[in-house]
Nucleic acid binder design. Structure first.
Length: 579
RNA sequence: GCCUUGGUAGCUUAGUAGGUAGAGCAUCACAUUGGUAUUUUACAAAAAUGUGAAGGUCUUGAGUUCAAUUCUCAGCCAAGGCUCCA
C-alpha cells in the first residue's frame, strides 16, 4: 500500500516537472514521464538545459505545488483527445498506440497530460522531491529515433526519507567498483593505453589468478578439456561464422600486408576448428572444450564502464559439442556448475533471464524459425523441469540461438549479464560440424556455448561491489599482515613471515616505526582479513595474537595451528574466517 | 555514437571577475623532547612536536589577448544515463 502511494506521489511529481518545464520553456514537446525504481523521469524534446538550471525548475515546481491544484481525471473520446494533444507530436504517437477509445487525462491547473494515473489528490501532496540528473534518452528507446532530454528526479513522503535516499546514493557512489578498486589498488586506468583497457595491478592480478585457477580446476574435474587458441585470425573465419556481418563495427579488424585479420570477438570458431580437425564419432560426444579466452570488442565509447564493459577481457568460455539426446543432461550440468560458482563466490542476488529471439527482427537473427522454435522449446523444457525462476526476454537471444542469462545488478542498480548459457543450432551448420552416428551417417552436433565464471574482469567488479572490498580469505590479495610492536620483534616477525609464506599463504610484514593502532587502521583500510601483532610477549612464547575483520583478537595462537586453520578456510573457499 | 557532469601534486581538493597556484593526507630529510615503551579501528595514538624538502608544462592542441590553468573552439580521458552487448 505504501508503495502504491509512493508511486502516485512520484508520478505526480513527474507531472509537476513537466508542468514547470512547459511554463519555463514553452517550446518544449513532451515525451513520456513514468515512475521508475527510485523515482521518476520525464523526457522532453527541444529542451536544452544544464544541471545548474535545476534550482530554477525546482522553484517553479514549488510555485505550482503551493497553488494546491487538484489532479482531476477525465475521459475523452479519441477525437477529442487528438484535439487536446494537437501540439504534442510525441503524445499523439502514444495515442495511436492506445487501443481503446476511452482516453484518460489528468489535469492540474492549466496543465493537462495524457495519463492513465493514478495521482495524488492535490499538488500540495508533493513536498519532498529533488531533481537528480539529466541524461539523453532516445524516443521509444530506439537509437534511430531522436534523442530527447531526460530529467530524473525522486520524491518521498517525508524529508528524512528523501535525505536518507540521497545519502545512500552518495554511499553507493563510494562503494562502486571503480572507486573501491582504485582505493584498494586493484586496477588502474591509463589514458595513454586507451579506453576500456584497464590494467590489473599485482593485487588485482592475484584475484584474477585465484579465480582462474579455481575455475580451471573445477572444470577439468567436470570433464572439460582446456584449449589454447590464437587471439586473432584471418577475417575469413568470422565471415563463415557470420560474426563479421553482425558485428563488423564492433570488431578490431586490420590489414597486414594485404591480408585482413581480426582480433577475435569470441572463441567459438577457434574451438570449432579443433573439433573439425578430426573425424568425430557419436561415442566421443559430448566433447567439452574450455578456454580462458582473451576477447576483443570495439565497444562504443559511451558503453565502456570500469571493469564491467571493457574492450579486452578474459572470458571463461566453453563449447560443448553434443548429440540431441545429450543436450538436456549437458545443459543441466552447466547449470549445476554455474550454481556452484555463484555459491562459491557468495553471490545470492541473481536471477535467470530466458532470452529469446524476435521473429520480426530478420536482420539480427539467423532466419530459421523452425529451428528457433525448436531450440527455445528445448531450453524452456529444461528450465521448467529444473524449476528455475526466470524472466522471459524477447529479442535478447544471440543471433544463433536462445540464451539463459544469469543477471545481476551493480551498485547503481544497473543490470548486467554475468554468465550465459546458449543453445546453438546455427553455427554447427555454418561450420559443417559433424559426427559419425551409430548408423554410419553424418550427423550434426548441437553446441552449447557457456560461461561458468563469466568475464573475469566483470566478475571481479561484481565481487568488489558485493563484498565492499572485504574479500573472503581465498580471494584476498593479501591474506595476512604481520605488525611489529617494536624493533626487537622484527626478527621473530620475519620468522613468522617465512613460515606462513612457506605454507603458501599471501603474507606481508609491516615493521615500520608506527604505532600499533595506526598500523591496524592501515590494514583495516586495505581490508586485510587477518592481522598478526607481534610484541615481546608473542616473541617470548612463540605464540601469535591474531585479529580478524570482525574486530576480535585471539591471543596465544600457535603458528602451525593458525596455518592449518587458514589453509583449511582457503581450501573450502569459505565466505568468512574466524578463529 | 548521443545527452549530462567532470579532469588542478601520489590521493582528496581550494582557487583565479585573465597577471603562470595554495591546503590536508601521504612521502623523504633534519631537529627537539622522550628514552626502548606489551597490543587492536577512525575526535585515535603505547612516540610526539617542530622545521624543511620534493612533488603541478593546472588533461592536450588551437584561437582571442600584452598576458590563458581561468574565456572560445576542437580533441583526449573518466563518471552517470540512453542505445548496444556475439
Amino acid at each position: 500500500m505504501a508503495n502504491d502511494n509512493l508511486e502516485k506521489l512520484r508520478h505526480s511529481s513527474a507531472h509537476l516537472l513537466a508542468q514547470a518545464i512547459k511554463s519555463l520553456y514553452p517550446k518544449v514537446k513532451l515525451g513520456v514521464g513514468p515512475v521508475i525504481e527510485n523515482g521518476f523521469y520525464y523526457d522532453f524534446d527541444n529542451l536544452e538545459i544544464k544541471e545548474s538550471d535545476f534550482n530554477k525548475i525546482e522553484n517553479k515546481m514549488r510555485g505550482i505545488i503551493k497553488r494546491n491544484y487538484k489532479f482531476v481525471k477525465s475521459k475523452k473520446q479519441r477525437k477529442a483527445a487528438e484535439k487536446i494533444l494537437k501540439d504534442e507530436p510525441y503524445k499523439l504517437e502514444l495515442l495511436k498506440g492506445l487501443k481503446n477509445n476511452d482516453i484518460t487525462f489528468y489535469q492540474d491547473g492549466d496543465f493537462v497530460d495524457l495519463c492513465k494515473g493514478p495521482h495524488v489528490n492535490s499538488s500540495k501532496d508533493v513536498k519532498f522531491f529533488k531533481l537528480t540528473k539529466i541524461a539523453g534518452a532516445y524516443w521509444k528507446g530506439d537509437s534511430k529515433n531522436k534523442m530527447l532530454t531526460r530529467i530524473y528526479g525522486t520524491a518521498f513522503h517525508n524529508e528524512n526519507e528523501l535525505k536518507d535516499y540521497l545519502k545512500l546514493e552518495a554511499e553507493a557512489e563510494e562503494k562502486n567498483h571503480v572507486n573501491l578498486g582504485k582505493r584498494l589498488g586493484l586496477f588502474v586506468i591509463d589514458e595513454t593505453i586507451g579506453k576500456g583497457l584497464p590494467l590489473l595491478t599485482p593485487k588485482g592480478t592475484t584475484i584474477r589468478r585465484v579465480l582462474e585457477r579455481f575455475i580451471q580446476d573445477e572444470e577439468i574435474k567436470r570433464g572439460y578439456q582446456y584449449t589454447r587458441t590464437p587471439v586473432l585470425a584471418k577475417s575469413d573465419l568470422y565471415k563463415i561464422s557470420g560474426h563479421i556481418d553482425h558485428f563488423r563495427d564492433d570488431m578490431f579488424i586490420f590489414d597486414a600486408n594485404g591480408e585482413e585479420f581480426a582480433l577475435r570477438p569470441m572463441t567459438c570458431p577457434h574451438q570449432f576448428m579443433i573439433y573439425k580437425s578430426e573425424l568425430r564419432s557419436y561415442r566421443d560426444l559430448p566433447i567439452k572444450y574450455a578456454e580462458i579466452a582473451d576477447l576483443f570488442r570495439n565497444e562504443k565509447t559511451g558503453e565502456l564502464h570500469g571493469l564491467i564493459r571493457v574492450r579486452q577481457f578474459s572470458l571463461a568460455d566453453a563449447h560443448i559439442f553434443c548429440r540431441d539426446d545429450q543436450v538436456e543432461k549437458e545443459f543441466e550440468n552447466v547449470l549445476d556448475l554455474i550454481q556452484y560458482v555463484m555459491k562459491t563466490l557468495g553471490f545470492k542476488d541473481y536471477w535467470y533471464r530466458f532470452s529469446k529471439w524476435d521473429p520480426k527482427d530478420k536482420k539480427k537473427y539467423v532466419n530459421n524459425p523452425k529451428a528457433w522454435k525448436n531450440t527455445q522449446k528445448i531450453m524452456k523444457n529444461i528450465v521448467d523441469k529444473l524449476k528455475l525462476k526466470y524472466v522471459e526476454a524477447d529479442g535478447e537471444a544471440a543471433f544463433y540461438g536462445p540464451k539463459l542469462d544469469i543477471q545481476m545488478r551493480n551498485v547503481f542498480g544497473k543490470e548486467d549479464t554475468v554468465f550465459t548459457v546458449q543453445i546453438d543450432f546455427a553455427l554447427p551448420e555454418k561450420f559443417e560440424l559433424t559426427y559419425e552416428g551409430e548408423d554410419g551417417k553424418k550427423h550434426r552436433p548441437i553446441v552449447i556455448h557457456r560461461s561458468s565464471i563469466g568475464c573475469l574482469e566483470r566478475t571481479i567488479a561484481m565481487l568488489i561491489e558485493h563484498t565492499g572490498g572485504n574479500f573472503p580469505l581465498w580471494l584476498s590479495p593479501t591474506q595476512i599482515r604481520i605488525l611489529t610492536i617494536n624493533d626487537k620483534n622484527i626478527k621473530f616477525a620475519n620468522e613468522v613471515l617465512d613460515k606462513l609464506s612457506e605454507e603458501g599463504l599471501r603474507v606481508e610484514l609491516n615493521d615500520r616505526n608506527e604505532s600499533i593502532p595506526k598500523k591496524v587502521r592501515d590494514a583495516q583500510v586495505e581490508k586485510i582479513p587477518i592481522v598478526i601483532t607481534i610484541g615481546d610477549k608473542e616473541q617470548k612464547n612463540k605464540k601469535l595474537a591474531v585479529r580478524t575483520l570482525n574486530g576480535k583478537v585471539k591471543f596465544n595462537v600457535n603458528i602451525n595451528k593458525l596455518a592449518t586453520i587458514v589453509k583449511e578456510n582457503i581450501e573450502n573457499k569459505n565466505a568468512k574466517f574466524s578463529i
